[in-house]
Design a protein around this nucleic acid. Structure first.
Lengths: 356, 356
DNA sequence: TTGAAAGCGGTACCAT
DNA sequence: ATGGTACCGCTTTCAA
């Protein structure tokens, strides 16, 4: 009933053109900011647009231009502080460069990831940033690039894919902390990751589908081998997919007669859970157990003791990935570049000599 | 040069129709899954589509249907664990219901928020979920609803807006912890929030633009008044927008001669910083200072001492908002509903009696 | 500089 | 059940 000032039931260029007394083409030119128009026409159209409260329809624009101004992002779990921080890096760059971000969680499920890519492609995103759940299963990603849309891999590479990739020097980081632990006398060192295998057991790095984690484990095992520690494969534990799973695994590990003297947690969520289980079991860190965690989550410095961590440049990981993608969308960038960002070990107090 | 198996330069319904030997309309019917088609036609089209590797163009579909299958989400900062968890709730519901999510960070800046809404509207999202930076400045949100797109307010309401709203019972929670602190003998109780005012000083709740925080402060001040504590407005500190700001404010507060015996932190990021400053200053929690924080962040249980917190159903906040929106998009839902989710105080060890 | 008209890739109405 | 065709809102030749 109350027609109100503006009952904007989709005002189109045609409407604006009509009101301004010019052709649709002319109106479109000023509204779209392209071509050439006389000042008089420009003013008339601008005024009409304001009066009518004209809102451009980006969908229609995308239809003809073929560009949607959108980038699709697929991550494992936005709830994980690692991804939410990387996402912040991505969205910041996107905003600055006039892009919009569509986010889909894969839950680290390959099927969900495939569906996500399909959806994103159907929505005609201009490009993709993906943190692949499995580096071995990348047919859908290949397909995406084949459709002409640039793809950037985040935190996890894949040799099978010749695309821009931004990762951290995970192997090097793992080697560093493993050396350190061994130098401190540790021999029973466990590595704990959320990545899972079909039978929930670890045999060889080839079992691990997540690039970043595989590289870490390779680094870990390599250093162990160099130090003449054998059979360390048995100390790699997979399947810490939820806090509950982690709790179960860690509890079993720490209650066994041959319990580890040190644990390397593959991310801060796992590190936190290890911390909790220790407390619950009455084990002291670092005297009963040394703990190192990947990801310098904000809380790691306030626990007692504070946790030694591998600081990853997470924000920059996302930022760099987005910048790489945007550059490519703007026609810059030649061949695929693989960026490796450096990590840094922050020594705090959760690591000490192995008990005698 | 290498034409490869499929050089999918956009296969359209027309292409599929041609290959299948049917009309565009018929092909569209089977591809779009509407109308009625004979089995023979269906098979022919399906086969042709597969052979050509047909990919629907959602943009084109949206153009005619007027629905984009997309919901826009505007939050303050996806990096904040509060929002990333709420976001998880939103994306989960979206995926289940076939919607896709466009995320924009406002950085709690009203201008960025306005631009975000404009962008989202231009992209023709079907609906919006917004955590408004300022509940007083909602003209752009009004406009959004006027354009016919449903809007759901997340964590922060606005009386000026008659739309679906999902919040927590912040006032009640604040009242509860304030009572508790007063009962323990605290008189100098500080409330610290990231919300800011033009001159970075607090005078009255009306200065606070963030609904959730304003309600908490009202609860805090109300209980204080009831307990005959006057001038507690001076104990409300605003502007803890970054860890650095927080650090400065908290340090000043704790180094003053009349330092608080208890601090209420408005979110976990602030709570963490208070914790750090105390440690740095050599102040013990809870003996020198009692600490209560809003948001049951995962780490709050592992510090020494563990932190007493107000647990908010953050995931459900996002989940509920998304569900409300989707229902409305599907034509269900009558008038605007305001959902208030209950909070719960988790008593841990960071609170004790006020020093004598 | 401006306008007319042909798309973009679907959907949907109207006949047949 | 199927085909023809007019859109959706904007961009972009091509002429004038």
């Amino acid at each position: 009933m109350d027609q109100s000032p503006t009952a904007n039931t989709s005002v189109t260029v045609a409407d604006v053109a009509h009101k301004a007394g010019v052709s649709k083409a002319t109106a479109a030119r000023v509204l779209g900011g392209y071509g050439t128009v006389s000042d008089r026409a420009r003013e008339a159209v601008t005024a009409a647009a304001r009066a009518l409260d004209y809102r451009p329809n980006e969908l229609a624009r995308s239809m003809t231009t073929g560009r949607s101004g959108t980038i699709g992002v697929v991550v494992g779990d936005i709830e994980n502080p690692f991804f939410s921080l990387a996402m912040r890096g991505i969205t910041d760059v996107a905003r600055q460069t006039g892009f919009t971000v569509v986010l889909i969680n894969s839950g680290e499920e390959i099927d969900t990831e495939k569906a996500a890519i399909r959806t994103l492609l159907a929505k005609r995103v201009d490009g993709l940033i993906v943190s692949p759940a499995k580096e071995s299963d990348v047919g859908h990603l290949k397909e995406a690039t084949r459709s002409g849309r640039p793809l950037v891999l985040l935190d996890r590479g894949s040799d099978a894919l010749d695309v821009d990739t931004v990762i951290a020097d995970d192997r090097h980081a793992a080697e560093g902390i493993t050396c350190r632990l061994i130098a401190l006398g540790h021999r029973r060192i466990a590595y704990l990751t959320a990545c899972d295998t079909p039978d929930h057991r670890f045999r060889t790095p080839a079992d691990i589908n997540t690039g970043s984690v595989r590289r870490r484990i390779e680094g870990f095992l390599g250093v162990c081998r160099d130090a003449d520690l054998s059979g360390m494969e048995d100390w790699v534990h997979v399947g810490a997919v939820t806090p509950e799973h982690t709790r179960r695994i860690v509890t079993a590990m720490l209650e066994s007669s041959q319990r580890p003297t040190a644990i390397i947690a593959s991310d801060s969520v796992i590190g936190l859970e290890v911390f909790k289980v220790c407390r619950q079991l009455g084990l002291g860190i670092p005297n009963d157990l040394s703990l190192v965690s990947f990801h310098d989550a904000d809380w790691t410095s306030v626990t007692t003791p504070p946790v030694t961590v591998v600081r990853q440049p997470v924000y920059r990981l996302g930022e760099t990935a987005a910048r790489l993608l945007v550059d490519r969308l703007n026609g810059k960038g030649a061949q695929a570049s693989r960026v490796v960002l450096q990590t840094e070990v922050i020594e705090r107090a959760s690591v000490t000599e192995a008990p005698a």
